[in-house]
Design a protein around this nucleic acid. Structure first.
Lengths: 247, 247
DNA sequence: TTTTCAGTTTCATTTGATGAAACCCTGTTA
DNA sequence: TAACAGGGTTTCATCAAATGAAACTGAAAA
């Protein structure tokens, strides 16, 4: 054994099988075997165990497997820590691995935004993001998201506030917000910090209220406008999935 | 091996551990070990595997385990068969085992109710309940539930219908419905069938609309009024949990 | 201080998980 | 029609890996 981790291999393999279903909801035995790099017979046995306990079920018609009612049952009984910073971390890590850029999560707090969670890219040149950092709500992609999709009273409070930067015209700001609303995501290039760019999207909960802003950020020479356009749909899809996890 | 089932013991044990959390959301290592009848060290290793994959997490303060975000994540991505008859079956089986009486699930269909799911008690004398049976909406505990908590238009349609039994005064029926609404559950003793009694409660989905009626039924000499009063809170709690599972 | 109790780690034992290969289907090609 | 292909299923010899007793740790209670 002696791998340092005191775990049970068979169990980890079974759990890996379950995790396959985050990508596609219906998988055949051999498809799963390929994904987890195990032999058919091994996967078959593990699936039999999962099926016996109701963690996966098989579609009689297609013989494909999908997640079982037990997952649903367990999740219904979960008193899930409703802290998005905890809930969304694994999704953010996945996104970071996919895009290989720093991923941040912001919420509004008064007339500022707070970075409540962040996972950094592994690249040598990367956006470094401190969790807990407080930033202004006037500049940056996430600011636009948090303001554009906010309740009207939040927007008004912000407009009334005195600390609006001198260079920023109210009308320009409003135009930016309108653009964000229409395209569904926001970008920023060297707005707040030299050499930095970002794309941000809103995360809505099941009740369709704004929960947070999810952003990918990196050096502006790597995170070009084209790259940002590419990333936007990925971010939006991730945000959609994350929205299901928070309330 | 030769037990007929081609399964992996370690995996089944790990899944049993997860199922412990349907009863209580926070459990210590030894509590779990007792529940699954395994040695501490075995449970510890299995939990380490589950924890490593995020299926359980431990509360730093209390050192107790609870279900992890992965469950939530998986369930969010599930395209769950929204058929209550399938979803709620395991909960119904659990309830049957707890109360040792027949459990039925009814939905309204027009001016009738349909038993869309049932699990029978194991006792020799028991309520036999055929799945798919259609019953009138005038008598029986589940009828009262399905009518009392229904949308107003359903109630009106029922009142207008001509096939109301002769012996049943409209005013009496209305009084019954009011009682059901006030106490939250309905009972019936030998209303529809001689020697049979039942308690029924409503199942509401997350949107607080009536989905089905959940009933426990048995011989009236065993399912006495006192027993029914005892069962009611159990049923209500079960229905509350079931409501989270359907939409 | 000692005791107790929960969690953790070690380790010898051997069970029981493993994967190659064979087998069984059902649908498809020759 | 037979041969083939491609999925799922079962068998089985092998030995890696899961097991549980016991020892260990550390913190809290007596």
């Amino acid at each position: 054994m002696e791998d340092g981790k005191l775990t049970v291999r068979a169990v980890e393999r079974a759990l890996d099988i379950m995790l396959c279903f985050t990508d596609s909801s219906n998988l055949s035995l051999t498809e799963i075997a390929v994904r987890v790099s195990l032999h058919k017979s091994t996967v078959h046995r593990l699936l039999a165990s999962l099926e016996g306990k109701g963690f996966v079920v098989r579609d009689f018609a297609t013989d494909k497997y999908r997640l079982g009612f037990r997952i649903w049952e367990l999740s219904a009984n979960m008193t899930h820590s409703d802290d998005p910073a905890i809930i969304l971390l694994p999704e953010m890590e996945r996104l970071r691995d996919q895009l290989d850029e720093t991923i941040s999560l912001y919420v509004c707090d008064g007339l500022e935004r707070v970075r409540i969670q962040a996972v950094e890219s592994n690249q040598a040149i990367r956006r470094v993001a401190a969790i807990g950092a407080r930033l202004p709500l006037y500049v940056g992609a996430s600011s636009k998201i948090l303001v554009a999709f906010a309740e009207p009273q939040v927007q008004e409070a912000l407009m009334k506030a005195k600390n609006m930067p001198v260079g920023l015209e109210r009308s320009v700001f409003l135009k930016q917000l309108a653009d964000v609303l229409s395209q569904g995501y926001a970008t920023s290039v060297e707005e707040r910090e030299l050499g930095a760019a970002a794309v941000a999207v809103p995360i809505f909960n099941q009740a369709h209220t704004l929960v947070a802003s999810l952003a990918v950020s990196g050096p502006s020479n790597r995170l070009t406008l084209e790259k940002m356009k590419e990333h936007a749909p990925v971010l939006l899809e991730a945000a959609r999935r994350m929205g299901k996890m928070v309330r």
